[in-house]
């Protein structure tokens, strides 16, 4: 476990700057998500921290130690790969013991640690199996156990839930969070899934085209996105221009709809599309040629708003998010 500091970290592949002067400082024991679309440089960033890529500029510090010149196998970093990268010729136990065997530990110490970690991820009954005999979710647990077994200073997770189906993924998210909170290890979690980033992390780093767009807690990043990219990548947003030419965003769930004209209505329009998805209903409303998305929690069963109906939109001044760009 350690404080992690990235200073001006830069990586170029030929002409392309994949990671551009990234600065992040993470306190001990934090769960950080690096969130961004594919090709934003998040995986390259992770690979530099792991030691698989050498940065062109900048430094990486674990506490006070610069690790840029430390080879990957000396960094003591646990990594869970997108493909899990379990050793196919070894059993679950052997996979988990692998990292411990590289350290000068007695067989008793190794056995005890392996047992403990396998218990943590609830894989005890599968410990004699080979990876091929396990489901995706189980392989995921083994990969996590293998990375945690070495008591790493830092844990790196590379899109490791994306291969699972949705239901399992949601289950694993919660479980992963529990395990990580228990083990108190500083964690970087790379993902392109904003929901996953919000559920799993204390802190979200939003990346786009090699630079950091915004850093903050899930609440900060969702409620106060700095620019259009962050607002639209993290959740949904409607964009408006105010009279003075600045632009602002309003989240769909913060817009109130009513069939009758009421005081403080900001826009009026016609419902063009309704999607009912159980807990919420989404309305697309056409206002002055712009589509506005509005989501209502279905606290009561209601069907009072119909397609083609004229509605009035209202939101609080607080719900307007001022955007920095353009």
């Amino acid at each position: 476990m350690a404080n992690i500091k990235l200073e001006n970290l830069t990586k170029r592949f030929g002409e392309n700057t994949v990671v551009d002067r990234v600065n992040i400082e993470i306190p001990n024991g934090t769960l950080v998500s690096i969130l961004g679309p594919s090709g934003c440089g998040k995986t390259t960033l992770l690979r530099m921290i792991a030691g698989f890529e050498t940065p062109d500029e900048g430094s990486i510090f674990f506490d006070q130690d610069s690790v840029v010149n430390v080879p990957a196998n000396k960094r003591n970093i646990g990594m869970v790969f997108q493909s899990y990268a379990l050793f196919p010729h070894m059993t679950v136990e052997e996979n988990v013991a692998y990292g411990l065997q590289q350290r000068k530990l007695s067989k008793e110490e190794i056995d005890a640690r392996v047992k403990q970690v396998i218990d943590t991820v609830h894989m005890k009954e599968f410990q004699k199996r080979k990876p091929k005999q396990l489901s995706g979710g189980q392989q995921q647990r083994v990969a996590l156990a293998r990375a945690l077994a070495i008591s790493p200073r830092l844990l790196l997770l590379d899109e490791c839930l994306s291969a699972l189906d949705k239901k399992l993924r949601v289950e694993m998210q919660t479980e992963l969070r529990k395990i990580l909170e228990e083990s108190k290890v500083t964690t970087f979690f790379v993902t392109h899934d904003q929901e996953e980033a919000m559920t799993l992390s204390d802190f979200i780093v939003v990346m786009n085209k090699g630079i950091i767009e915004q850093m903050g807690t899930p609440l900060e990043v969702y409620e106060k996105p700095k620019n259009k990219f962050v607002a639209s990548f993290l959740g949904k947003a409607n964009f408006f221009q105010s009279e003075d030419g600045t632009s602002f965003a309003v989240r769909p769930e913060k817009i109130h709809l009513s069939a009758e004209e009421q005081a403080g209505a900001r826009q009026e329009g016609v419902i063009t599309f309704i999607t009912y998805s159980g807990n919420i209903t989404s309305y697309t409303i056409e206002c002055d040629g712009e589509a506005v998305l509005c989501e209502k929690q279905n606290v009561q069963i209601r069907e009072n708003l119909k397609k083609g109906q004229k509605v009035f939109l209202r939101w609080d001044k607080d719900s307007e998010i001022e955007l920095a760009d353009e």
Binding site: A50, G51, F52, P71, A72, N73, K74, R75, N76, I77, G78, M79, F81, Q82, S83, A85, L86, F87, Y98, G99, Q102, R103, R146, A147, I150
Partner: peptide, 14 residues
């Protein structure tokens, strides 16, 4: 798979 080699390296193997 090259990720196996990287996994091995991240686990401390030369």
């Amino acid at each position: 798979d090259n990720s196996l080699l990287e996994a091995s390296s991240s686990l401390g193997a030369s």
